[in-house]
């Protein structure tokens, strides 16, 4: 869309230029010939760009409508079921009166939070995310460092890069399904799955961070007569120490969200409570659970952001609590398919 917009801007500018060119025609004959040719070239390029933008829009539109048809998207359906959703909304947000004014009944949320010990469930989810991250770090370090072309010579580093690609190609939820024969449907299986996922994702981030290291300090360490492994650790890894910690904190945030979704397939923790209440159509209880999830994920993100800005050692803006809350639904949704 933005491509089309800029093309139209360019076109307008081109039209505006024309009268000015006509005025310069009063100059030398040969010079005006050159300008005419330049103008022709520019006009032709513009037309080709326009044509391309149109063609891309048509193809894009075609695929979009095909995709909608494929998923059976229908506005009629939304209208038909709207009353049902509306009544569910009433349950999601139970009403009470406060000083005579209608208000959301937080009391019924709190009642469920205490009744089902949702804070305990949230701690299980946090434990899954944290333990999974820590279990994944050694594998991520080994695969990530050996996957760098600067540590392992060219064709061989692809053994490790390839391993990480395969791990990443399989979503964490699917890893949990794969591990079911190992530990049943349990938080333990979910933690193993998160650990595996971390090796692929964090390892890849480590490899990318290593591409950024400078040659100078590596040569400096090499020239002291240090051996190969010492050169890798002191010359290379010491340069990426800070980014490694920052990436690990970032993966911890993602893993906490994945741990929530693990519950949806029966992996335990807070996500499991959400799944149970959904199947019982207890929408008020569902919303109470969602609130706890919200607090859990935002807290982990807040801590992670603080740690990251602290180790960077500079007082940067950082994410405000407000921004964390506004962007929460988007990140939550992303973690389900990542």
């Amino acid at each position: 869309m933005s491509g089309g917009g800029s093309a139209s801007d360019g076109g307008a500018r081109g039209d505006g230029d024309r009268p000015r060119d006509a005025r310069t025609d009063g100059g030398t004959q040969s010079k005006s010939g050159t300008l005419d040719r330049a103008l022709q070239d520019i006009t032709l390029t513009k037309r080709i760009k326009w044509g391309m933008a149109f063609l891309i829009s048509v193809v894009f539109g075609f695929f979009f409508f095909e995709a909608l048809a494929e998923v059976g998207f229908s506005v009629a359906e939304i209208l038909y079921y709207w009353p049902e959703f509306q009544s569910a909304l009433g349950d999601f947000f139970p009403r009470t009166t406060l000083f005579g004014l209608p208000f959301v009944d937080f009391g019924s949320y709190w009642q469920f939070i205490q009744e089902r010990d949702l804070l305990g469930a949230a701690i299980v989810t946090l434990a899954m995310g944290f333990a999974g991250t820590v279990l994944g770090i050694p594998g991520a370090l080994i695969l990530g460092v050996l996957g760098s072309e600067r540590v392992t010579p060219y064709p061989f580093n692809f053994i490790f890069r390839g391993t990480m690609s395969v791990i990443r190609a399989i979503p964490a939820l699917v890893w949990a399904l794969i591990y079911i024969p190992l530990g049943g449907v349990s938080p333990f299986t979910a933690t193993l799955a998160i650990g595996t996922d971390t090796m692929g994702n964090l390892g890849r981030l480590f490899t990318d961070a290593l591409e950024e290291v400078e040659d100078g300090p590596i040569e400096a360490i090499e020239s002291t007569g240090a051996n190969r492994r010492q050169t890798v650790v002191f010359g290379m890894l010491s340069q990426v120490f800070t980014p490694f910690i920052a990436w690990t904190m970032y993966i911890l945030e993602i893993n906490t969200r994945i741990a929530v979704t693990m519950g949806l397939i029966g992996g335990g923790g807070i996500g499991y409570v959400l799944q149970t209440q959904r199947s019982l159509f207890k929408y008020t209880n569902m919303m109470a659970t969602i609130l706890v999830i919200f607090v859990l994920v935002v807290s982990v993100e807040f801590v992670s952001q603080r740690v990251r800005s602290y180790i960077r050692g500079e007082e940067e803006e950082g994410l405000t609590v407000l921004k964390l809350i506004i962007e929460f639904p988007q990140r939550m949704a992303r973690s389900i398919w990542e």
């Binding site: 100078g216 300090p217 400096a220 002191f234 010491s238 340069q239 120490f241």
Partner: peptide, 11 residues
Amino acid sequence: MIFQQHYVLGQ
């Protein structure tokens, strides 16, 4: 060896 850009480890 001492290098022009010193190449010490900032960390």
